[in-house]
Simulated assay, not measured.
Amino acid sequence: MEIQAIIIDDEQHCIDTLTWQINKYTKEVRVVAAFSSPKEAIVYLESNAIDLVFLDIEMPEMNGFDFLAQVQNIQFEVIFATAYDEFAIKAFHASAIDYLLKPIHKDLLISSIAKVRKKKQPKILPEQMNILYGALNAKEPVKERIAVPTQEGLHFVRVNEILYCISNSNYTFIYLDGGKQLLVSKTLKEIEAMLPVQSFLRIHHSHLINFKKIEKYIRGDGGYVIMDDKKSLSVSRSRKEALLSKF
């Protein structure tokens, strides 16, 4: 039996990679559509019946949980594609909602598809979502430091000293109070997953900021922010609303 699926992820390279993996390693799943905008996916689902959604969690326009809250009468299975850390993964186990941890391993993808195929009721239940919300929000420790790999080894960075992070292909520049900067061998997406959403926000494909360190926001198409060190960083149009909502 063919499983018709869609992918929702704000990162095009994640969509491309997952589509390639599905086509290569599974026979029964057919990706019929992919969306970088959850809002466009909601419109699509209003007139198209599908069996499975591969859903990213952290997206600027609308996160994965808000997306599910806006879908009327969910009749499809959901596999979260997430960069959450090990603590949060326990929450997915508790809720019995399946997930794939990025970067996605082909064996785990095959296993998740097998679970979907065996399920008699292809939908997630409100009780499962309630368990997941509660487990993710309860007792999660606030990180004071993160460990990031540099050329010299692991560098332990105080989270509250980070001003902003700028993508440099598969590397990231982390800018700190006092004019310090680090070149880290992690992508911006990976750094974003390590930092608390209470303080950090992606304002551009290449820019992740500590919004508690903003000095000024200048209006425009997307506008730009001026940080405490006087650095100007552009804000993409799609992420402007998410930034302004923080204030």
Rank of each mutant, 00 (worst) to 15 (best):
I15K: 02
I7F: 08
D16H: 09
C14D: 09
A34H: 15
A5P: 10
D10Y: 07
K39D: 10
A5W: 10
D16I: 09
D10V: 03
P38H: 07
D10S: 07
E28I: 04
K39C: 03
N23V: 02
L52M: 04
F54W: 05
S37R: 03
E46A: 10
V29E: 11
W20E: 14
D9F: 08
E40Q: 13
V53C: 05
E46H: 12
Q21A: 08
V53Y: 08
I22P: 01
W20N: 11
K24H: 13
K39I: 13
D16M: 08
I15N: 11
L45S: 01
C14T: 10
V29P: 10
S47V: 08
D51R: 01
D51S: 06
T26V: 03
L18E: 02
I22D: 05
W20M: 13
E11M: 12
I6C: 12
D10P: 10
A49D: 12
Y44H: 11
D51I: 04
F54P: 02
V53S: 02
D16T: 15
I7N: 10
A33S: 14
N23M: 05
D10E: 14
V32P: 07
S36G: 07
R30S: 14
K39G: 02
V32W: 06
K24F: 01
A49R: 12
L45A: 06
V29D: 11
K27E: 15
A49E: 14
P38I: 02
F54Q: 02
E2W: 02
T26L: 11
H13G: 00
F54A: 01
I8V: 12
E2K: 14
Q12L: 15
E11I: 12
D51C: 03
A34K: 11
A5R: 09
K39E: 14
K24G: 00
I15C: 08
